[in-house]
Structure formats: structure tokens, C-alpha cells
Design a protein around this nucleic acid. Structure first.
Lengths: 239, 239
DNA sequence: AAGCCTACTGACGGAAAATGGCAGTTGGCC
DNA sequence: GGCCAACTGCCATTTTCCGTCAGTAGGCTT
């Protein structure tokens, strides 16, 4: 309540006051202590604003936030609603919630007519089966991917054999109905696919492999495609 | 932080759920107790929204407001990229292209950092099989749904029998891997499901059933769910 | 090399707000 | 009169927020 309002005023101050502006000035402007101001700046940055801060100098707003209103064609709205609905159904709870939030945020910027279209899209996703929540914490794996940190996983293979191994997580992939972790296996020194539902436990280590995730992922896909016939090559999602 | 996000979702729920909507429903939607919900409604009203509340009836949003700017979290970006990638893979060419367009438009408005995140999302969709293009023109069916015009379809049933029938198209649904048209069959005077891949040809007629599509669709879903056990009820995509 | 300016971080304790539960009131409708 | 659902007040608990303080760090001037 009070807080979000203050963040709004802080952003306004950054926009209007002559830059660079010191933290002390902004703190005074928003009526808050210096410490809290730094926290507020963090919040704005977390929300996507790009704020330069140089020691001994001050702050400068480099990139503003606010999703500008968008327009979409009717077909594009169908695609958006359909895709996000799909994620709401198949994703783990946190991801499903995020899909809902995206839909809300995007449609909020739409003019009335398009909002109604979004609401009554002709393409829909219905599911009979309730997906049973995966035992594995997908969120943790995703976190590891983002941070490019090695993880130690307890993996149960097809023969019920459990092994603990350290891997470099590259991506989480929906591969023909199956949730799969693509990773570099440090034990075997090779690319491996791990079915997420067979990962018994996960521990994120301190070991970072930044910034090698993206190129390694590319290599992995190339490697998988090397032997495959042209018609059944993997493609990276959408790009 | 969490609160302002919730208020946003509440507003969105008020916008999208069929009005009037009860406090209990909204509380469930935003994952909060009834008591807190009343407080949240107060907050929105304090922020300027005009929300009708009649005892024994429910709420209705009379005048909308805009809340402070929002951006996407990393997880929300994952959801967006994943969902649209899915559509790019499973949709017919026109729809797939639309999904790509949405992704471009949305990411174009994002700050650099988030754009990079979108590009290198940890969740991805890979497909081996190339989808064989459906014989049926899904676009035409969608068009008929949008325009709420009756169509005459040539349908080949399980026993290879072909019949021509006039139907009122309600929605196109991805139902367990299968593309299905939900429609009112004028011949049988009943709700029917038609597998899109068995629709041999389509002709849009002049006959309009506007504005009955949305209520009819609701009836259809209720009808399907009437006998089903609680655990396997259909849900309308995402809302 | 020594200050100085300012961004930034961590820890800690107290203050304030948010939250949920409960018991009750109220107005409209069957 | 009973039911429904909006609304209110109160209170214990939990969570979040906030200011203070102590310290680190980069760039600048002297």
C-alpha cells in the first residue's frame, strides 16, 4: 500500500529530477531513510528498471519501465491465450501461476475490445486428467539453470539403480510429454538427458559454470542432431 | 510487493470473471482469506476503482483503474516463452506464425536484461516429429467461431461414414493431443464433439447465432461435467 | 598516500502492517 | 423466517518493513 505508492514516487523522482541525483536527495524526496532508499532502488531494479549508480556520483535512470500498451491481431490473441493456458495446465504450480500472471498483465494493457476477445478466445485447452504434481522440485532445477551452477542429483535409472552425480544443468525441456533435464554429466564427461520424474533429490552446489550454459546447450542440440535424419531434427523453441 | 501483485490479480479477476462474482470466489482466486479479500476490495476502492457490491448478490466492476507499472519476473518470462513455443510447434502455420509475432512484440518492449532472459529461457520445447499439416483448414473454423456463424461440415465418423451437417461452432479445443471442434449439432439438436482431422470440408453459411456462442459454450462444458467425478472435471482454459 | 564523496551491503531489533479467524450485523430475496 | 453474501470490529499471530550502525568499495581531488 504505502510501499508501492512510494516506489511509484521514487520512479517519478528519478524521471523528473536532473540527473545525476544522489541517494540522499532521493531519500529526502520520498521521505525515507537512506537505507530504505537503497532497498527501494533494488526493488525498482528487480522490477526491470535500469538505474545506473556510480560511486561518488549519483543515480541516473537509463531505462524506464512500464509495458507500453500493445496491439495484437485476433489470431495473435488466440496464440497467446492458448499457449499460456497450456502452460497453466502442464507446468508445476509456480510456473502455472506465472502463466496466469502474464496473461493478466498483457491483457491489462489491451483495449477493451481485445480484452473481450482474449476472454472468449475460440481456441482453448481443456484437460480431463489432473496432472499429478511432480515429486521433483522443478523450480530448483530452473534456478540452477538460471544461475549456471552445478547440481548434485540423485538419479534413479531405468534399472532402479540410484546414483548420485554432479551435472551442469542446461535446460528443462518438454520432450514429447516428458519433462527432461538436459545436462552435462561431470561423472561421464558427456551430455546426458535425465527424466525429471526420476530425479530423487537435488542439491545446488557453489560451483559456477557461467557463462557456458548457452553455448553448451547449443552444442548439446547439435550433438543430438548430428546423426538424426533431416526430417526429425530438434529445433530450439521458436527461434 | 506480494500485496500489490495480489491487488493486480484481484482487479484482473474482477475484469475477467463473469459478473457478478462473489467474495468467496475472488478470495479463492487470489489465494487469500475472506477477511483479507474484503480488505483488498477496500484497497482497490481507495485507489479509485468503482466496485458495486450488493448483499446476497456479488461484486461487479463498474469503473476500471490502472495500477502502477508492472514488468515480468523471470519465471513469467519462462511461462511466456514456453507457452508460445508450444503453440509454434502444435498450431497450424497461421497460428504458429501469430505465436512468433506475439513473442517478438512482447519481448521488443522489454528491457535488455529481460530480453536476454527470454532468449535463453531455461524451459524449452523440443520436438522430434514434424507435425504433418492438418488437412482441415482450422483457420476457417476459427473464423466461423469468431463470427458466430453456422457452418456446414462434411464429417467422416469412426465407421468411415460421411455425413454433411450444419453445426454452430463454439470452440476449438486441444483435448488430450487431439484437435476437437465443440459445436451444437443442428441435425441432432445436441452438443457434439468433432475431431477436426475428420472434418472433410467446411462451408461457412450466412446464418448467425450471435451472441449465443459464449453462453452455449459454458452450457456445453457444464453438460460435459455434469456426470464426471470431481477430479476429472474440465476446466476452461486458465480462468 | 590520504581524504572525501557516494554507492552499496549486512546485521539487528523494534515498529508497523498484513493476515486469518471469529462473531456478529445488514439488506434483499424466496 | 431462513438463506445468501456483503460488510464490520476485534484480536492474536505472523510477516514485512524500516532505521540505525558499522563497514566495504570505487573514483576523485589534493
Amino acid at each position: 500500500m504505502a510501499r508501492s505508492d512510494r516506489l511509484f514516487r521514487l520512479l517519478q523522482a528519478l524521471r523528473t529530477l536532473p540527473s545525476p541525483v544522489t541517494a540522499a536527495r532521493l531519500a529526502e524526496e520520498t521521505g525515507v531513510s537512506l537505507r530504505s532508499l537503497y532497498r527501494d532502488i533494488d526493488s525498482l531494479r528487480a522490477a526491470g528498471a535500469v538505474i545506473d549508480g556510480e560511486r561518488g556520483f549519483g543515480y541516473r535512470l537509463t531505462e524506464d519501465i512500464a509495458l507500453p500498451p500493445q496491439t495484437f491481431t485476433q489470431l495473435e490473441i488466440e496464440a497467446l491465450v492458448l499457449g499460456l493456458a497450456e502452460v497453466q495446465h502442464m507446468g508445476e504450480p509456480a510456473l502455472a501461476a506465472a502463466a496466469g500472471a502474464v496473461l493478466s498483465k498483457v491483457t491489462a494493457t489491451l483495449p477493451d475490445r481485445l480484452q473481450r476477445q482474449a476472454l472468449h478466445a475460440a481456441s482453448q485447452v481443456y484437460r480431463f486428467e489432473r496432472r499429478d504434481p511432480p515429486i521433483t522440485d522443478v523450480g530448483l532445477l530452473r534456478e540452477a539453470c538460471w544461475q549456471e551452477r552445478a547440481v548434485v542429483i540423485g538419479y534413479v535409472d531405468a534399472g532402479q539403480q540410484r546414483t548420485d552425480r554432479q551435472v551442469l544443468p542446461l535446460a528443462i525441456v518438454y520432450l514429447e510429454r516428458m519433462l527432461v533435464l538436459l545436462a552435462w554429466c561431470c561423472l561421464r564427461q558427456d551430455f546426458r538427458k535425465f527424466r525429471v520424474d526420476r530425479i530423487a533429490d537435488i542439491r545446488i552446489t557453489e560451483e559456477s559454470f557461467r557463462p557456458r550454459r548457452v553455448p553448451m546447450l547449443r552444442d548439446f542440440v547439435d550433438f543430438l542432431n548430428a546423426g538424426a535424419p533431416e526430417a526429425s531434427k530438434m529445433t530450439l523453441s521458436g527461434r
